[in-house]
Write a protein that binds this DNA or RNA. Structure first.
Lengths: 340, 340
DNA sequence: GCAGGAGATGTGAACGCTAACAAGAGAGTA
DNA sequence: TACTCTCTTGTTAGCGTTCACATCTCCTGC
């Protein structure tokens, strides 16, 4: 416990002494500065090895004024979508040489997002990605600290920030058109929670196609993304006469609906066709395998980092960008032509 | 672009000047030091507000020698298990006032884990949680830098590090016993990839019960956790005579097996009973709803942070701990008594 | 009325690194 | 030979905090 006994990890000066050079030369070697004699460099590297020296990034960050760390604010990373997005972000960030500091919110609200941004700002992150698909997160993004670049993923594009997102409206159009093309008179929709922008976009694409085709727009059902809420919606739909085609806002709810139909003896796709959204790894093995809309979460992560890095480089004169990732229709066995 | 124009964020000295005190007094206010006159404190807080000052944690970390950041090394956070564990860790860490710096590996190997640990050490994280359920990660944990506390989650307990994990063996026992109790002669097993410790544990618990009960131990099938690999195993099992009960090492593979059986007209649970593992949110809505073993990932996250913090506090004289979270049997509709 | 002590505040020196500048050595040129 | 130029290395001064210590003020008690 005496101070002389508890050995501190070696610092640059220790390496310098050992190699018989100045600490600055050690710094030059570490930073690949060209003007160092090969022999000197070798000597320094040897000393580094012998001492097991590791550079202190905190001290480095203090003087360089950047931490090579990006902040990620997210919500419920247990869900497949957010989890995949965050994974994509992390991979892309590390490929670009950045660390990722995570904050996942339990509930998303303005105060929560603002706090998270504040924390990350204190940590001097070089940039922030906010995965905040709820409308209530938008106000917090409005008064984000101006000195630090921010990119929103799946966020509202109204604000001052750049946005990267999957084209939800187009995805919903694909789903709805597919069902109409199969000869169904109209398409019912089980939407996501009303606060979610993704839920909005899917409703919009759905109703847009129906209206354009002059079809009746059935009453909207909605759930909370969970299989259970899909199950309940399924029970309601099965009890409603005339339902032959349903577009469910995500695969988990679609699973619940499938379960409800199975229990009530409603055959899919013979009696009712179902299209989901997301293409989670399980969908292909549902009973029946689910026709759905695939979102490329990896691409979203990649682009969000790309946009963020560009913004960081641009410094003061950055301009908001908007990047939209196209969804893809995936045909499986849960949809079939309408038979009267 | 002129240096006078690009304004830096305010620092402690700016606040001090504005409030008419020394920087040290500002520091005291920020750190809730008791010996500050109420009026002075108010003046400082006002100045902080007016200037929009935010403390620079990097500078703080340099002198206090801790960053209040924990490192988390993980693998494929797209899978439900790892994602949930990481989420639990993140929540627990933040509740304890720590940030989380994430590194998710694409492939897990000794070099990858070692690199990740090295990076995190350079970042001066105060502690590290390694979620590395593969055996190949173990060697990297052996020569972890001694100056920084590490906890392994679902990792090998052979090494020098503390381990928090779900009792896989017991889970497998519960599943196997349940099937035997239903009158099945023996139980087949679809295992996870051979490099995974969790796969091992489940095999061990399964074969242990069969052996103890004097039942034949059928040939082992195995997959890679994916629904597709479960589907393929299912096809093989359906073609094997005498199979009446199957314990599948995770729910996703169980889903694949259910699909295979459905396609071949094998009825579950009438002809074959199936038990899964994990209890993912979807399982309850499979066709039929899946009997499975629940893992409490939230608890794992919570305990891992608890153990880590304790170890950080203990400093040099820490001792390895081992915390085991019990699994829970969840009865649903995919299992039924054996009928000859 | 003054020693002693507690409370409030300030001063200087770290923390471990990089940036900016300085300086010495050797090569090339007139 | 002297002069410049380039290459290599060293020296000094921060970055924005906290820590250790010094100082000043005011109160208490004899």
């Amino acid at each position: 416990m005496s101070p002389s006994l508890e050995r501190r990890p070696p610092v640059m000066a220790d390496v310098a002494t050992r190699a018989g050079v100045s600490h600055q030369t050690v710094s030059r070697v570490l930073n690949d500065h060209p003007n160092v004699r090969a022999e000197t460099r070798a000597r320094v590297l040897e000393a580094i090895n012998e001492l097991g020296y590791r550079r202190n990034m905190v001290a480095r960050a203090l003087v360089t004024r950047h931490t090579r760390t990006l902040g990620v604010v997210s919500f419920d990373t247990t869900l497949y979508g957010p989890a995949s997005t965050v994974y994509g972000i992390e991979q892309a960030a590390r490929a670009a040489g950045y660390f990722v500091s995570m904050v996942s919110l339990k509930t998303i609200d303005t105060a929560g997002v603002r706090d998270a941004l504040g924390y990350l700002a204190e940590q001097s992150v070089d940039g922030i990605v906010v995965v905040a698909p709820q409308r209530s997160a938008a106000p917090a993004l409005a008064d984000v600290p101006t000195d630090i670049p921010v990119v929103a993923v799946e966020g509202s594009h109204a604000g001052e920030v750049s946005v990267v997102s999957v084209d939800q409206i187009e995805g919903a159009r694909l789903a709805t058109r597919h069902l109409l093309d199969l000869g169904h008179e109209t398409v019912w929709h089980v939407a996501g929670p009303s606060d979610w922008l993704e839920a909005d976009g899917r409703i919009e694409g759905w109703s847009e196609v129906l209206t354009a085709e002059g079809r009746p727009v059935p009453e909207l059902l909605s759930g909370d993304w969970s299989p259970r809420s899909g199950y309940e919606a399924g029970l309601r739909l099965a009890a409603t006469p005339g339902v032959t085609a349903v577009f469910v806002a995500n695969d988990q709810m679609a699973l619940g609906a499938l379960r409800a139909f199975a229990e009530l003896g409603v055959r899919v796709p013979e009696q009712i066709s179902i299209v989901g959204f997301d293409d989670i790894p399980e969908s292909e093995f549902f009973t029946p395998p689910l026709t759905t809309i695939r979102q490329d979460f990896g691409a979203v992560g990649k682009y969000s980092i790309e946009v963020l890095l560009r913004q960081m480089e641009a410094g003061a004169e950055w301009s908001h960008e908007r990047h939209v990732v196209p969804p893809r229709f995936v045909a499986r066995a849960s949809t079939a032509p309408f038979r009267a």
